[in-house]
Nucleic acid binder design. Structure first.
Lengths: 341, 341
DNA sequence: CTGAAAGCGCTTACAG
DNA sequence: CTGAAAGCGCTTACAG
């Protein structure tokens, strides 16, 4: 604030300026800012004081260059994805703890995943967290040679990279256990087609049904992780009212909401007439008027593990790739209950 | 791919390596990569070829440092905010057109707006787009001296910064015009308390009602831009069924959805018994089972203008601050219709 | 603690 | 086009 100037100050203060003002050497200022031993408390104070008065802030680009290390972890995200938002919430503090800086690069219409990744590589990220990637394995392998890549939410076996993902089968199993314990037998699964995680969830559904001796009740309807697809599946069920299931397990929350809505429009009440469960514990599921029973994938833990995995690979390049499976948690809300009768 | 090595390659290729491989000078490589005149087509090809074979990519940090210009625009965002996502979609291509790089910094629980901004300043962003900021004017003024700051969605008069925001009053006016033309007179407004844009929308509601000679029907209920607050406001209305309005205009979509839900639970149908309109044209509003009449704030245009405003301020520091008001557009969907009668 | 020096990977003139 | 040079703002070791 001791600036007094008007207009934008083009020449920003450098370490040199701080050193001059504090009456110390440039090397000492560098040392103080890096929190290294070798300066007395009094000197540190003087340096910080001078820096504050000048509005000095170390230049990240210069630091990166001089260190030949950036200490930056890049994160490829999709803004609209609330699960990614949850992950990012966990990633920032985890990175800070380990002394790393985070750079976000978003995919969006007109900016594909590769472009987002290339931008991060240009910034010389040492680590690269790929949230819900849809990149081909060859490319991931290639990028994995330039940075410590950690896909989150999908495994890339044989690409030489660590990954973090939810233990899908455990989440699905919890859902089916929950429904079966309530007394449901006719439990239909609306799947997510080729969407991430769908294949695992479909398979886990079959397995869990069999475990409960409900092999004969296995029934999978094709879906797509959209509300419309969920509604359509529900219409299919409603077409034969005499054989309505007592519960529907959808492959994600959006599809579950479509199912819910179609049932409601058809005059069925949830969970009175039919129970519905989703997957993701999205913001939508949490809305009080939806109040959907669903599965939380523990993004907090996944984000934290992803950062740690990247840092491990950066700091010890000889540590091999590791797959981290995070246990999801069933969240019981208002759309599941005992079947009528 | 001509790498053949195993394990992560620590020493990344530099311009020097490319020059050697292509058999040209370092300066020439620099020139080619910056797309400057002074190299023949054949030479350019050779350089690009060599770079591709080596997997060379210019080091952003080194470029920034050497240019004493970063050509980077930082963006402070909130991941969970879909409006911000829409803005970011527009910001990337707009920045690329003008030759700028984008750096995203997210706010999140445990990482406040200042922290997000400071991180961007550390990366020497020349421009700073603040999406839906809640920073105090003093701080904005201060940051505005270090970079070309452009708040989006809120004005900071007297802070010496340009801003981009929606022409709230025009959006509200379109909603009230629409409802009035349908024949509604009892139009209640559920406001957003102190949330961004709420004050303007509240005021515009009153003005628009007066324009239609509906001053006596002005009625504002306190809200909060949440679904719960919307539901609560609806309960208040339902408490006196004999004086139910024919239409409700909520200050944002989430509140509108709360209103919708409370009415439905009370056995009222929309738009049959009562019309409901929101604001934002969020993803929620677009869900087919909600299908909410609302106002689109034209994020595409706002994002584009924000980038342009920042670049204008960067490249011509003498251009004064400018406020850009973007016209919103009414999106008529299924929750509004003629009142019963 | 200081002070001088080299280097990180680029850009930017400049003489040839 | 080349080639040598200075500089961007730091870090890093090193002799004193």
């Amino acid at each position: 604030m001791a600036e007094g100037g008007n207009g934008r100050r083009r020449g920003k203060p450098t370490m040199e300026d701080v050193a001059a003002k504090a009456g110390v050497s440039r090397a000492l200022v560098s040392l103080v800012f890096r929190d290294q031993p070798g300066a007395s408390e009094a000197t540190r104070d003087r340096v910080y004081q001078a820096a504050a008065e000048l509005g000095y802030r170390p230049d990240t680009a210069a630091q990166m260059l001089a260190r030949s290390r950036t200490r930056v972890i890049g994160v490829m995200v999709t803004m609209r994805n609330t699960f990614h938002a949850d992950l990012v919430d966990a990633i920032y503090p985890a990175a800070e703890d380990l002394g790393y800086d985070i750079l976000l690069s978003a995919t969006s219409p007109g900016r594909d995943e590769r472009q987002a990744v290339e931008a991060l590589l240009g910034h010389r990220c040492e680590g690269l967290l790929l949230l819900g990637p849809n990149l081909d394995p060859e490319y991931v392998t290639h990028v994995g040679r330039q940075a410590a890549v950690v896909p989150v939410g999908r495994r890339y076996p044989d690409c030489g990279v660590s990954s973090v993902h939810a233990a899908e089968s455990k989440g699905v199993r919890q859902v089916i256990d929950h429904l079966a314990e309530l007394g449901h037998r006719d439990i239909v699964h609306v799947d997510g087609g080729d969407r991430p995680g769908s294949a695992e969830r479909r398979k886990a559904y079959r397995t869990a049904m069999r475990r409960h001796g409900l092999a004969d009740h296995i029934r999978v309807l094709a879906g797509k992780h959209t509300e419309a697809a969920g509604a359509e599946a529900a219409q299919q069920l409603l077409a034969d009212r005499t054989h309505l299931p007592t519960a529907v397990f959808a492959s994600n929350d959006r599809a579950a909401i479509g199912v819910l809505d179609a049932f409601q429009r058809a005059g069925l009440s949830t969970p009175g007439d039919i129970s519905v469960a989703g997957y993701d514990d999205s913001l939508l599921a949490q809305l009080s008027h939806i109040d959907l029973t669903t599965v939380n994938q523990n993004p907090q833990r996944q984000g934290e593990l992803a950062v740690r995995a990247a840092v491990a690979a950066i700091e010890d390049p000889d540590s091999g790739p590791q797959d981290h499976a995070v246990d999801p948690k069933l969240v019981i809300r208002g759309t599941t209950a005992q079947p009528r009768g």
